[in-house]
């Protein structure tokens, strides 16, 4: 798609989104209107500020639309979309590992198998962070280098262990992921 067409489309999308928000989201998701009356006195309601912000958004869309002809570089390329999808996939896998590897491994190998009872016990409480966090670092390095190397894996796990030493050994009251959620 030509850069000018892409910019015009962006402007139109922004105007449309602002319009939908003003017509449907704002009236249905705020209790008071633009102005409300309390004990006989008028005051600004909760819809006023977001309403103006959506109006500003529509104006920005209009300005982008009006300048669309001058656009000479594409806003978002196919590469950018693929990058974002890849990145989100990688982060989603890492967060899933972070959240569930501790409980799953505890269920398989710990006596009793209840992660909640073990979430203050080393090494169980660190498993999710090491696998999820260290794995995320290793995966991102490998993604940038376009190959998996032992160095990337070592850096990932070293970073996770260093953070465990800083946050967990340094402070009694801090919880590393995912121990606040389980």
């Amino acid at each position: 798609m030509k850069a000018s067409h892409q910019t015009a489309l962006l402007g139109l999308c922004i105007i449309a989104l602002a319009g939908i928000a003003l017509l449907f989201w704002l009236p249905n998701d705020t209790v008071s209107g633009f102005v409300q009356s309390r004990r006989g006195r008028l005051s600004i309601g909760d819809a006023m500020a977001p309403g103006l912000a959506f109006g500003l958004m529509a104006l920005s869309g209009l300005l982008i639309l009006l300048k669309a002809r001058e656009a000479c570089t594409a806003l978002v390329t196919r590469h950018d979309v693929i990058f974002v999808l890849g990145l989100l996939g990688l982060v989603a896998v890492s967060f899933t590992l972070m959240r569930y590897s501790g409980p799953v491994l505890a269920g398989l190998f710990a006596d009793g198998g209840d992660y909640r009872a073990l979430r203050d016990t080393t090494p169980w409480k660190h498993l999710g962070f090491v696998f999820g966090g260290g794995g995320m670092v290793a995966a991102l390095i490998s993604w940038m280098e376009r190959r998996v190397t032992l160095r990337a894996v070592l850096i990932g796990f070293a970073a996770a262990i260093a953070l465990i030493l800083v946050f967990d050994a340094g402070f009694d009251d801090l919880l590393l992921p995912p121990n606040g959620d389980v």
Binding site: F95, M98, R99, F129, G133, M136, V137, A138, L140, I141, M144, E145, I155, G156, A159, A160, L163, F167, F171, L174, L175, L176, P177, P178, N179, G180, D181
Partner: peptide
Amino acid sequence: RYLLPVVLLVTLTAIYVQETSMFPL
């Protein structure tokens, strides 16, 4: 390429210790 992922993990960890929930991550 070695620093960026580590900085990302440090940032996410710093947010988690404040918010103690995966939702903010």
